[in-house]
Design a protein around this nucleic acid. Structure first.
Lengths: 240, 240
DNA sequence: GTCACTAATGGACGATCGTCCATTAAATGT
DNA sequence: ACATTTAATGGACGATCGTCCATTAGTGAC
């Protein structure tokens, strides 16, 4: 929107129009989002969020490689100095974006798997799987961002911290559920570990399938596939 | 090695040393590798390969984001103009590198799964799994490169073509084997599809695990995990 | 209204990016 | 031996990178 305004008017008024358009449009939106008191035109915390969101959107749109400071600021409608001001540099912003993205994922995952405490372990496992493959978590934007971050994680320690599914509450949720399922058969603790790791691995694979071919991807079939594998691991459980 | 020479000598002789070192060292190596006729100092094909290899090494070392034309040339010991000369630009070189990497993977996979034609379908499936998780295919370099390419694939169509495991001979190998296993039970064609897709998904997940935590990764445990899942899918088969 | 303070701006800066090409060097043909 | 062709070089080029900072604008205290 900003760019369109800038391009469509003559050069003499370009700067004025861009500034006023930015000011009005974005700040009003921010005010609504954050509930900031009316008339205030400054809100550092909201701008930090704006930058993080713009970073994620830019990565999803044009890829990490082409995500530059200028591009992020352009999209957020804020000035170029803002990144250094609030984050101290591009790298820190990227790390903050990865953290925010990860936190958002787990928050939404928690929300979607908040079954009653009387839910069977099978239902809890399936809830995790269905949540992970739901449109809220698995969509074009999130897959692109997720894999982009993972792709640069090994050369970017700050991001690596948020590129793993393996060290979160989610793992314990699954492990506990599988433990309950096998409780009569306690001798086999490796089964629980394998079921947990295997389920997460299958989900990873599904995300890759989605990234590779979004058209041909079917959430239902993917859920059924994983259920089928779990049904094999725990005969009698996870029946359709 | 080039850089060390450049740094360790004085500035007056820097250029001469670098050139002579590059000429001697690299060309002799290339001659040995390619069997080029003695005394020849030009070999465009070898240089293309040299650039591709240098590209992959650079990506594995410092990540795609920092992989620039200068860095690639520095590592290969060739001049900066070479990339434009042989590939017409950086993007084409990256695509060629992705293609080469993919081809190398499948060549090695073929080599390692070349069992006799009397091998059981179970053995053929397990051969694919063990090959994919072997050190020859799954190592720090290959994982970093693989995920780096996948991370930029969605914004780089040329690379996307080589970032999928799903449209290759490998899929048919697995599908055929699983079909043989279920041949008495022909009515269930989805089982074959699920087993194929699930196995590949599990392997994807194992690669991610390896990338995320190379120290804690165990090839044997990963193979056993997948075998366990398959054993559940096909009761009686894939026994330890 | 004035003052101190912080948020925000946008341009300056040197470094590096990828591309391109005039030049040099090597191989080949005659 | 010389001419022709092709491989290879390395610097020039403008664009863009990320960082930094002098300046402006908004806010709250008095």
């Amino acid at each position: 929107m900003l760019r369109q305004n800038g391009l469509s008017c003559q050069s003499s008024c370009k700067i004025d129009l861009r500034i006023s358009a930015k000011r009005m449009g974005l700040l009003n939106k921010v005010e609504v989002l954050k509930g900031r008191k009316r008339g205030s035109k400054r809100d550092p915390e909201a701008n930090k969020q704006l930058l993080i969101e713009a970073t994620l959107d830019t990565i999803a749109d044009i890829g990490v490689t082409d995500t530059s400071v200028s591009r992020i600021c352009e999209r957020s409608g804020l000035s170029r100095g803002m990144i250094h001001l609030h984050f101290g540099g591009k790298d820190n912003l990227l790390t903050a974006a990865a953290q925010h993205f990860s936190a958002q994922y787990y928050a939404e995952m928690d929300r979607m798997t908040d079954l009653g405490s009387d839910a069977s372990p099978e239902d809890r496992v399936m809830a995790v799987i269905e949540a992970d493959l739901s449109e809220a978590l698995l969509n074009p934007r999130s897959t692109k961002i997720w894999h982009a971050f993972r792709g640069i994680a090994s050369s970017h320690p700050g991001i690596a911290r948020y590129s793993s599914t393996q060290d979160h509450k989610l793992v314990e949720t699954l492990r506990l559920a599988f433990k309950e399922i096998t409780q009569e058969n306690v001798r086999d603790s490796i089964l629980v570990d394998d079921a947990t790791a295997g389920t997460l691995a299958l989900l990873e694979g599904m995300w890759v399938n989605y990234l590779t071919d979004m058209q041909g991807f079917s959430r239902r079939r993917s859920v059924d596939l994983i259920r089928r594998f779990l049904c094999g691991l725990f005969p009698g459980k996870f029946k359709l």
